[in-house]
Nucleic acid binder design. Structure first.
Lengths: 232, 232
DNA sequence: CATACCGATCTTGTATGCAGGGCCGATGCC
DNA sequence: GGCATCGGCCCTGCATACAAGATCGGTATG
């Protein structure tokens, strides 16, 4: 149904969630237009949508770039996720068994992606757990909001070199699910609070944004494309 | 600084927040283009932005309309606001005196608008209290999200004929501010929870969506343009 | 009289063209 | 040799033009 317009948005957002698109990457209108086989107009519409969602930004006569959240913006993003996710847990009364089933299945996919070494799927699923949870609670509005915040979180984690282990995150997800299954929403909220805090704390060792960093890296690791997205 | 593009967005959002634009109202591209003295392209960009923010929607070859949230969407919106606002209160540790000062000044404006009978300013300020609070807490990201949710709340309140009194809302705002000033964040969260519940409960008497309603109203209030925006 | 058909008109969807402005390399000057 | 300047190239910003589709009116027919 929603093919023509949302497609190009989805592709970009999915790429961000899968860590295939990094913060600061340029998104030229003409380049995307030829890639998708459409006019610049359609690409521009998609980019404007993504800008409203806080995923890309335009510099007036320069071009479109994936957002590079500052330290402050990163903190705001984590605080927002913290507030929303603990807030929704404090709002709902009971948790249906179907919710647990969805989350259990999601956990299985997470483990599968981690085991198979698919870093894209791993990144996507680890972030999607939270979106999935809120959506399972029946609030699509909040899920959409959280998805965009998650995209920014992924960008932030790459920007500030998160050291948080995937297995650790997955374990924490499972513990949260266990508490939800037990009906202990307060404990689940506490675990969620700690979990988000862990992810945020894992990137406190910020990347020391001195200009020499880029130069040094460029001189040692030859080409302009680091081996994160070899295919494109 | 941000004049050219955001202006048209702001005008529409402000009109929604001020209850000057109702749910279901048509927003023709050409009409807005001539009104703002720009091309359809710019108008379209603004509408696409507003669509991403969940304020308007486009029906494929029909036109742009202000969203008419369904019962379920209305509940989702209130739950989202509930989760966010109680969540942020549970997230922050201390509340700076400057925050209290901002809220006190805001309360003064609310009372002023209520006393003067300026229904537009009243609607705007009553909703803006919540946005203002989150922004005063220092989280602009969450404040932007809440602003869009507030816009939908205003549309919902008009759609389902809210009976919640403005003075009552303002009083509740003041009690919340008092608890924040006292440093009792838990009590503030409880009051906020009750406050949002009150607003939501006040519109449970839904508007009986029979088609005769529109027809009857149209037959009584003559022309095609209702007298909501006489100047523009 | 009711209904089906059909064209006029208005709406959005999409492409294209041109203008404004920034970046970068070449060139001339100090 | 270093530096300022200038011109070409490329990118976005914006308007316009055309195409596709939907609504609504009139008209003809059963």
């Amino acid at each position: 149904m929603d093919q023509s317009s949302p497609t190009i948005d989805r592709v970009i957002v999915d790429a961000v969630l899968s860590s295939r698109i990094r913060a600061g990457m340029r998104l030229g209108e003409q380049a995307l237009a030829t890639l998708f086989g459409v006019s610049r107009t359609s690409v521009r519409e998609a980019l404007i949508r993504l800008e409203a969602r806080g995923i890309v930004q335009v510099i007036p006569r320069r071009g479109w770039f994936v957002v590079e959240p500052s330290i402050d913006e990163a903190q705001e993003t984590f605080q927002a996720r913290h507030a929303i996710e603990t807030g929704i847990l404090g709002t709902i009364a009971t948790v249906e068994p179907s919710v647990i089933a969805i989350l259990r299945d999601h956990l299985r996919q997470e483990r599968e992606a981690i085991a198979s070494g698919d870093v894209g799927a791993r990144s996507y699923l680890l972030g999607d757990f939270h979106v999935c949870m809120v959506e399972a609670f029946g609030n699509r509005t909040l899920a959409d909001i959280l998805r965009d915040l998650t995209a920014r979180t992924v960008l932030i984690s790459a920007l500030y070199q998160s050291s948080h282990d995937a297995t650790e995150s997955c374990d924490e997800h499972e513990r949260i699910t266990d508490m939800l299954a037990a009906g202990d929403l307060g404990a689940a909220a506490d675990l969620m609070s700690a979990h988000i805090g862990n992810v945020e704390a894992a990137l406190k060792k910020r990347v020391a944004h001195d200009p020499l960093q880029d130069l040094r890296q460029a001189l040692q690791i030859a080409p302009k494309n680091a081996g994160s997205n070899p295919s494109e």
